[in-house]
Nucleic acid binder design. Sequence first.
DNA 1: AGTAACTTACAATGCAGTCAGTAAGTAGCA
DNA 2: TGCTACTTACTGACTGCATTGTAAGTTACT
Lengths: 211, 211
Amino acid sequence: MATTRRQLPPRPETAARRREILAAALEIFGAKGYNNGPLAEIAEQVGMTHAGILHHFGSKDRLLVEVLRYRDESDVEGIEGQHIPGGTELFRHLIRTAFANEERPGIVQAYAVLSAESVTDSNPGREYFEDRYRVLRGEVAEAFRAMCAERGVDDPAHVERAATSVLAVMDGLQVQWLLDPTQVELAATSAFAIEAIALQALDPRPSPFDA
Amino acid sequence: MATTRRQLPPRPETAARRREILAAALEIFGAKGYNNGPLAEIAEQVGMTHAGILHHFGSKDRLLVEVLRYRDESDVEGIEGQHIPGGTELFRHLIRTAFANEERPGIVQAYAVLSAESVTDSNPGREYFEDRYRVLRGEVAEAFRAMCAERGVDDPAHVERAATSVLAVMDGLQVQWLLDPTQVELAATSAFAIEAIALQALDPRPSPFDA
DNA sequence: AGTAACTTACAATGCAGTCAGTAAGTAGCA
DNA sequence: TGCTACTTACTGACTGCATTGTAAGTTACT
């Protein structure tokens, strides 16, 4: 048995280099999809060969999950975590995010493409998106419950559905906006829909469709 | 010049055979995505080689656009076209569709995957989805205007946004439902959200987030 | 007789991942 | 401080596989 000193720490520049790769991968995967986005193109963008990327991340699958995590962190201000804003603060934050998103179509496209692609057979990003939606639904629902409590609403019947709907409408609007930005106002429509859903959750009115 | 009778009519069974292929392609593309869904797998499902499929459709790109058109026709009852139901009928139809969709996850997945994939670079389905959303938005907006008129609402300020939101929430819910059907009620949540959006469009209340 | 509806065989890419090798950094030690 | 041993961070070449499209041949309908 040798006195093995195996496993040296990574070099100081390595962390920055990895972030470069993750940013490039987010761009390529966003533009062309995960399946259709070759490692070689990502490599080219950071001045490397595709083998160099595999050296850092092991496989394309693992690169994707790291890209998704990276996107969370680099997201302007992480929605989740932190102080869990009590009442209306989370919703204001969601609407601000929608406004910010109008200035970064690349990120929006990456998210829209990769989340939908994640439902396909044996996609490596699936677990990430399952977890993400579960966490986000929980946080939005919690914010709804806080608002209900503040306003003395006892029976928050539709809190779960409202939370799910808020996230759904934001995602769905992104796809329509990406397809035709001249016809869809991403932020203004997000704000309208979120308000509509919140109002119905906090203070329900009868359905306009029942005869 | 020979008395060429070039171009013989297709044989009687051909139309049915093509439909078989389209159905198989919809299933494969839905399950694995367009880029990741090989022709060979579609061919296998209809008992053919991939060259046989290319004989019928010429290229994979052209197959996709025909698949998308086919999906419209085979959709239980086409939302668009026909009699353009005057008032609340369209919304009831949308909600019924959401209930029907809970029984056919394959179709839902195909739609979710292919619509998101269509925003990627040079995707052959893009034009189809652009057109489709434009048409659907117009029809839903028209239905909103009809409801406003029936109820004597003069200023339908948010009709366009409401129409966009209704479609968006339905699409977004599908993705969440596909990721975790045990946590998301597709139809019930669709109904809740559509009602919330419709109520706010027909009879707006002030935002709960101001002040 | 001619063509539709295929099949088999093949051409041409594109792509992830492996492997051996190289240059440069770092740790331990004299 | 300088030397040695080992590791990281790559490159280039290659393998192997998957995949779309084409071309030529076969069968059977009309």
